[in-house]
């Protein structure tokens, strides 16, 4: 039995613990919650759902923030 789950975060495949929530994932990545947006399998998540959304094996996430641009 594999102990973790595979997630594709911003195009990078990585292993995480089972039952990882979006909030926990952001914490592990060192990403402050307030200035990002998260898309899970092409669906944008509400911020209040970060802590109750449990991630599954092979989920694909896009986590964006604002960078310099014109």
């Amino acid at each position: 039995m594999p102990t973790g789950i595979q997630l594709v975060v911003n195009g990078e495949r990585r292993e995480f613990e089972k039952n990882t929530t979006v909030a926990r994932l952001l914490e592990q990545l060192g990403t402050p919650l307030e200035r990002v947006a998260v898309e899970l399998n092409l669906r944008i998540l509400d911020k209040q759902d970060y802590s109750r959304t449990v991630l599954n094996d092979e989920d694909r996430l896009e986590i964006i923030n604002f960078v310099g641009g014109g």
Partner: peptide, 14 residues
């Protein structure tokens, strides 16, 4: 001010 929307850098935590 304008900003762009891009992926968070997940490699460099700092």
């Amino acid at each position: 001010v304008t900003v762009a929307v891009r992926r968070v850098n997940i490699i460099d935590r700092n």
